[in-house]
Simulated scan of single mutants.
Amino acid sequence: MAPVITLWPPGGEDGPDLAAAYAYPDELAAPFVRVNFVASVDGAVSVDGRSRGLQTPADQEIFRLLRRLCDVVLVGAGTARAEDYGGARKPGHAGVAPPPIAVVTGSADLDPASRLFTDTTVAPIVLTTAAAPEQRLAAIADAGADVALLDGLTPAHLLAELDRRGLHRVLCEGGPGLFGDLVAGGAVDELCLTVAPIAAGGTAGRISRGPAGAPPQQLDLAGAIRDHDGTLLLRYRRADRPNG
């Protein structure tokens, strides 16, 4: 089992080298899918419908780091709406342009006046299909979206499009439905899971929700960090990949 390292303050001299611990594998020839979630100790994925109530300082530090390290942020439209997503603004790894937000939506139901389109320095990528309503497609294209019409929205279709664009360091931020589809498709390479020291109760769902009967995906613990406030930052890799 990976050692538990106390992290305080985040990024401080006595803490671990976070950039090295969370670095993507070198020389990727295909998309590597990292999923990032925060959950309470009793398994809730949100408080009052949003993840903000679960976030801790260490979780926010890792959230910002993971965005800097990735080529693209992949997110479902429901999460983008619920969390009021803005676009990417800060430079990514090696000081290159900010990673675009790639939103998965079969209906193209996105508000052209939302922060996703108005608060960004990089055009969002909208991954959808030709079956989406034409008026919605036109509206988000007019708002600046880079619209990609795919043959389907399965993990294979999504990752093939990201691969075509050379976006190999993939950071998926949910929601549970998209995560569940990636699990069912055997497409999750790494899970970064923050366990917040909160018992949330309520009716919140879990971090993954997928089709019934899908085989589970075996993961191995690759890293564990404990913050002084009880937050656990866990990193799991798929069992057929080496830990790093």
Results as ranks from 00 to 15, higher is better:
Ala82Met: 07
Ala199Glu: 14
Gly223Cys: 04
Ser107Val: 07
Asp146Lys: 07
Asp111Thr: 02
Gln217Cys: 07
Ala148Leu: 14
Arg165Lys: 11
Ala39Ile: 11
Thr203Met: 11
Thr105Lys: 10
Gly213Ser: 07
Arg81Ala: 15
Thr56Ile: 05
Ala214Arg: 00
Asp71Asn: 12
Ala2Met: 13
Asp220Met: 09
Gly15Trp: 06
Arg67Phe: 06
Ala80Tyr: 07
Gly15His: 04
Leu116Cys: 04
Arg67Asp: 08
Leu233Gln: 10
Gly185His: 01
Ile225His: 14
Val183Asn: 03
Arg89Trp: 00
Ala23Glu: 04
Gly92Val: 03
Asp48Pro: 05
Ile62Gln: 14
Ala145Asp: 03
Ala145Lys: 01
Val103Phe: 04
Ala187His: 03
Ala20Ser: 11
Gly205Glu: 04
Leu137Ala: 03
Leu74Asp: 05
Pro215Tyr: 00
Asp48His: 14
Leu110Lys: 09
Ala239Gln: 12
Val45Gln: 14
Gly144Leu: 07
Ala77Phe: 02
Pro16Val: 12
Leu149Ala: 08
Arg115His: 14
Ala113Gln: 12
Leu66Trp: 02
Val126Lys: 04
Ala199Val: 15
Thr129Ile: 00
His157Gly: 08
Asp14Pro: 05
Leu232Met: 15
Thr105Gly: 03
Leu74Ile: 04
Leu150Ser: 04
Ala39Arg: 12
Arg64His: 14
Thr231Ser: 12
Ala141Thr: 15
Thr129Glu: 06
Pro112Arg: 00
Ser40Leu: 13
Ile207His: 01
Pro211Trp: 02
Val73Gln: 09
Thr6Met: 13
Ser40His: 09
Thr120Trp: 00
Pro98Phe: 01
Val147Ile: 08
Glu83Cys: 05
Val33Pro: 06
Leu221Cys: 10
Ala196Ser: 15
Pro91Cys: 00
Ala20Val: 08
Gly76Arg: 00
Gly106Gln: 08
Arg64Trp: 07
Ala30Gly: 09
Asp240Pro: 08
Asp26Val: 05
Ala19Cys: 01
Glu173Pro: 00
Phe37Arg: 13
Ser114His: 01
Ser40Lys: 13
Ser107Ile: 03
Gly76Cys: 07
Ala148Lys: 14
Pro3Gly: 13
Leu158Gln: 06
Thr154Cys: 01
Ile198Gln: 02
Gly230Thr: 09
Gly186Met: 06
Glu61Lys: 04
Leu69Lys: 05
Ala88Ser: 15
Gly201Ser: 11
Val47Lys: 08
Asp227Phe: 12
Ala19Asp: 09
Asp48Glu: 15
Leu150Cys: 10
Ala80Asp: 06
Glu134Ser: 14
Asp71Arg: 09
Gly144Asn: 02
Asp146Arg: 12
Leu178Phe: 03
Thr203His: 13
Leu159His: 01
Arg237Trp: 13
